[in-house]
Nucleic acid binder design. Structure first.
Lengths: 105, 105
DNA sequence: TTAACATTTCTATAATATTGGAAATGTAGA
DNA sequence: TCTACATTTCCAATATTATAGAAATGTTAA
């Protein structure tokens, strides 16, 4: 992963509204949640929600698909795992005993 | 972990200079690296480096200790792991088969 | 086609973050 | 104490981000 990619992803998560959205989607699983349902659960006005979903999409952390007139968002677990791997890469000065294997979701 | 804590940590990492510093410290291990050595390795002027180290410290992602006239910074692996655990918490809608255990560094 | 609904884009305002030179602070050895 | 060095604080200019109302776009069902 390039550092620019990681910074974009981290910046996307470094905001309370977006972090809430992302965690909700992580917990929701592959099927995902419609934009409107997200806004309702989290109490976010449509324009604001759309702004934040765009940031998360642009960062590659969420995916969207259209179903009828709903747009359904879901977490991109692969990208999350890559980000975590990037953060912890070559950690602990090679003192491997301290590091459990990287998680995979 | 509270969401505010996670946002502060993620914001600290969501900046190229700080992410470089943090990753360098993660890879350096427990002993850490002096501020000056960090600045030299990464080509960052003292004032800028100090500004960013403060953000990382405030976020709890790095620790510092004074040795003589050097200030030595090191990664706080525990806080990093907590952040990762927060991101991945209750993931995949309980479809536990998909999720390896959380890493521990 | 028309009405109802879901979502996004447009827009302006307000708030926050980044940069690095210069000066200040703190420490150690002679 | 004096000097050299390591690091931090101060500061002002510049750039980036968040918010949400209103309007626009796209979709479905009748």
């Amino acid at each position: 992963m390039k550092i620019e990619t990681a910074v974009v992803a981290l910046a996307a998560l470094a905001q309370e509204t977006r972090l809430s959205i992302f965690r909700l989607l992580v917990q929701a699983g592959k099927e995902g949640v419609a934009a409107g349902a997200l806004g309702e659960k989290l109490g976010i006005p449509p324009a604001t929600l759309s702004f934040h979903l765009k940031a998360l999409s642009h960062a590659g952390l969420v995916r969207s698909r259209t179903e009828g007139r709903f747009v359904i968002y879901s977490a991109n677990y692969g990208e999350m795992d890559k980000l975590i791997a990037y953060l912890t890469e070559h950690c602990c000065a090679g003192d491997a005993g301290q590091c459990a294997p990287v998680r995979k979701c």
